[in-house]
Simulated scan of single mutants.
Amino acid sequence: MLAFKLAPMALLAAFTAAHFTVPNDDQNMSGLVVNGIPYSTRVKYMRLANEALFSQSGPCPFAAYGTIIVNHTSDEIVCRGANFRTGDPTIHGEISAINACTAHFVSLNMTASEIFQAWGQLSIYTNAESCPMCASAIRWAGFKEYIYGTTIQHNYNVGWGVITMASYDVFQQSRQLPGFQTSMLGQILTNETDPLFSWQYNESYPCPNNCVRQYSETRGYTTCVDPNAK
């Protein structure tokens, strides 16, 4: 019976990938210099987005979405976020980071108008393409830049439940918003971000960061866990 339950998990990615292509989701901008920022700097900060995930959620979190918000003028991270399972379905990595920045700005006694102006000077890095909710929040804020790694298409292919609307389409439908028009750079450092999202629904895929597979009574199949977790 156990083998019967587990076999579909190993085949899920291949089964799903054959059935749908997310429109306009191939926005590969790796290697490009945008707004005068070299690609090596993009790589550095995407790795730091992954580190923000690990520092807040451990080395192999099931929801592997990490986000940082960066001031490229001062070359520093302003705030960090990760996808937290708090019961609030809106607290994705991007929303977590935006909330953290808002709290930071309030602590600096910035007014609401000053905070809204600040978003236009900042870049948001997320290790996976934003869902339509988060992409919309990014556009409402008016970030200067939005940079992501793993695509919605990739996560759909490997078994994630996703809303199959690319950030490109959200951005295309938000051109009438006032203020800054956010630059979008897609598929940055996917060789390092894709593996973080590839093991959850495929038991044969290696665990990240020296995590190990262990049977989960809740999920009914093996999943990756931190061997040093207490």
Rank of each mutant, 00 (worst) to 15 (best):
A100P: 01
Q181V: 09
M46D: 03
A3P: 08
E114M: 12
T164I: 07
Y168V: 08
Q121N: 15
S113M: 10
A14D: 15
H154E: 14
A64Y: 00
N191Y: 06
M133E: 06
Q117T: 10
M29F: 04
V106N: 13
F180M: 14
F143Q: 02
I115S: 13
G93R: 00
H92L: 11
E145C: 10
H72Y: 11
L189C: 12
Q214A: 10
L122Y: 10
G159P: 00
V33G: 13
K44T: 12
V170M: 07
G58F: 00
N210K: 07
G93V: 00
N127A: 05
N109F: 05
A49Q: 03
Q173H: 09
Y156W: 12
M184I: 07
N209Q: 10
V225E: 01
Q187P: 04
C60L: 13
T67A: 15
A10W: 03
N191Q: 14
T222E: 06
N50R: 01
S123W: 00
L185Q: 14
D75Y: 02
I91R: 00
M110T: 02
S123E: 07
V212G: 08
S55A: 15
K144A: 15
T190V: 15
L196H: 03
Q56W: 03
Y39D: 05
R42N: 13
T150W: 02
S198Q: 04
A13F: 04
I115K: 05
T223N: 04
A100T: 06
G149M: 11
T90M: 12
P178A: 14
D226G: 09
N157H: 06
T21Y: 08
I95E: 11
I152W: 04
N127W: 00
C207R: 02
F180Y: 08
W140T: 09
S57D: 02
C211Q: 06
N50H: 03
L2W: 05
A166E: 11
A7T: 10
G58L: 01
Y125E: 05
V158H: 11
N202L: 04
N71E: 14
N191S: 15
C207D: 02
T193H: 11
Y125Q: 01
G93S: 03
Y146I: 11
N99I: 06
P8N: 10
C60W: 05
A49I: 06
E94C: 08
T182C: 14
E145K: 04
V33Y: 07
A7V: 05
P227T: 07
F143M: 03
N83S: 09
K5R: 14
H104G: 03
H154Y: 14
F171Q: 11
C79Q: 01
Q181E: 15
F171C: 12
R47P: 00
A166M: 09
Q121E: 14
S183A: 15
L2S: 13
V43W: 01
I115F: 08
I138H: 10
P208Y: 05
A82L: 05
A63D: 02
E192M: 12
F84P: 01
Q56L: 15
K230N: 05
H154N: 12
G36R: 07
M29D: 13
P132H: 05
A166S: 15
A97I: 10
A3S: 13
W160D: 01
N202A: 04
F105Y: 13
W160M: 10
A10V: 08
G179W: 05
S107V: 07
W119H: 10
Q214I: 04
V212L: 13
T222L: 00
L185C: 09
Y39M: 02
N157Q: 13
R85N: 15
G161R: 07
H19F: 12
V43N: 08
R219C: 01
